[in-house]
Amino acid sequence: MTDFPHELLVNVPSSIFLTGGCEVVVRLQHKDDIARLRAAYGQRLHHVVIHEKELGDIAWLSELLGLRVEIVLGDGDTLSNDAVEVLNTMQPLFRLDTPVGLFRNINLLASLGYPVMVNAFDGNHGMEPVTRALSYYLHNPLLNTPIEPFHSIMRHFLGNGPDTLWSIFGEVVGRNAYVSELGEISVAQRWILTGLCFGTLNDTWEKLVASGLYRRLVRIRDGNSASAPPCVSCPHRDTCGGFLRGVNVEWPCEVWQKIFADLRNQGRQVMGLTEWLTKGGCNA
């Protein structure tokens, strides 16, 4: 089995136990033995991922207390008041993978104080739900919880956030890895879904690092190569870094270019305001 180095954060299904020193994100199955998982991974367990349907099993959900939990939400129908009560004792992050009910879900989850990640790169999202989510993030003065990825992008513009979408979405080669149920390894799930892998769990880490995909991603990470031709002259390369066209060079990133522009514009205004305030406001 691959011996992942310590600095790796590896996303792995609960059916596979990873030995070695790397940190792990475990994708749980309903009724997985949580006590056994905790004992097996100890401090190496970074967080767990569950799906919405599992929110219906309150007893099992309660066993996750003390762990960081990422919840992949569908249409939000399984969320009950009992689940909310349990989740309030944790620090859950909700990942919204579907445009169905996206705005309602953001509205509800943010009002409950839960951070939300709009995972809008699966090709299913049209422009409208995502831009509405951005508008909600930018203009809702009642919001007191981050809506990602907008929040991290804004922090990036303000000079204190992660570098690019690669790190915001946890796809930094050399830091993140993803293991499929079949043991295929890549940097994240979307690569495996299109057949782009470093190798499998039967390979040594050295062999994975020598793979064509790994080396290509390193070149992009280090700024020595672009994901796609339009990235070379793209004004948003500092934010995106070619992430959007990473898997598919034809991916229509124009919607997101508009989002970057809006966020950059807002960021500039915030910077201007901060500068104005630090100079002493109107008395300066």
Binding site: T131, R132, L134, S135, Y136, L138, H139, N140, P141, L142, K258, D262, N265, Q266, Q269, V270, G272, L273
Partner: peptide
């Protein structure tokens, strides 16, 4: 909201979801 939210947070491209107005 119209009287308390600072004008700095008003984008020029999209409707403000709180006030519902085109910014």
């Amino acid at each position: 909201v119209d009287r308390t939210v600072t004008p700095w947070f008003v984008s020029d491209t999209s409707a403000n979801p709180i006030t519902g107005k085109q910014n």
